[in-house]
Write a protein that binds this DNA or RNA. Structure first.
Lengths: 144, 144
DNA sequence: GTTTATGCAAATTCTTTGCAATACT
DNA sequence: AGTATTGCAAAGAATTTGCATAAAC
């Protein structure tokens, strides 16, 4: 909670219920959440539009980052400190691998597993790399 | 054209205008197309609903594969033969890198560039890997 | 002649915008 | 007090479903 307020302050955002709740949602889980996941986790009575705006703000400030996945459109996860340095024109740098489970449908950040060096054709400029592995996560692969 | 008809036949699909047109669109470009791209490329007068169904069918049959990207939702590209072997329960296997350009916003299949070997934590089962590099493509990086 | 695919209407769901009321600092 | 954020209404897109018609085999 202390943590959450600090995060907001650090990025120059006012402390509001919605923002606290959303950050709380992310703090409670170890996987990425999409818009719908957040709606379901939120205490009911919240406003959908505000949620859209909150997500957008967090993304712009570098508090959360997008994770693309083939299955469920776009989901989000908290950024590590290393990536949230720059308030204006935040450019997210992900160096870890994401894993999407086909069974529980959760997307995890494998923070300890880094994206290897890769080759790209001449003339291409790399700004950002995403590596998404899909399959069965450690929990789901047991019952298989 | 011959090619297109063969593709449809090979997957047990009837030859229709819509299907021919959609495959034609993919054949004409060397980058991935999303739903909206296809709408714009299609000869006008087509039906949006049928396009949804066509994309879905092609995906199920393994004629096209999804490419996730943070920016534009989901796009599609033609599968190589190697990946379209299995009609029922098609499981797409991509071994090449995808590149999304931030300027022209196109997503390319870098067929000649393969995803390197990666490490995953114990207990996770890998079924599929996507590596998406974003930045400036060879054409757009020139004017920069 | 059968079966599959299409086109249309309509229902749902998702996302964005504008603006007045409210809450934060 | 001054500014940022919210909540609501409403508009605009995107996506899905059902069903009768038309096209493919």
């Amino acid at each position: 909670m202390e943590q959450i307020i600090n995060t907001l302050k650090k990025h120059g955002l006012r402390i509001t219920d919605m923002r606290r709740d959303v950050l709380q949602c992310f703090a409670e889980v170890d996987y990425a959440l999409n818009h719908q996941d957040l709606e379901l986790k939120m205490s009911k009575g919240f406003d959908r539009v505000t949620l859209y705006r909150t997500i957008k703000t967090f993304e712009e400030k570098g508090i959360i980052h997008r994770i693309a996945s083939e299955t469920d459109s776009i989901s989000y996860a908290l950024c590590k400190d290393s990536c949230a340095e720059n308030d204006h024109k935040h450019k997210h740098v992900d160096d870890h691998i994401h894993f999407t489970c086909h069974k529980c449908e959760k997307t995890l950040c494998l923070d300890a597993y880094h994206i290897p060096q890769i080759k790209i054709p001449d003339g291409f400029q790399v700004e950002n790399i995403q590596l998404i592995v899909a399959g069965l996560c450690n929990k789901c692969s047991i019952h298989d």
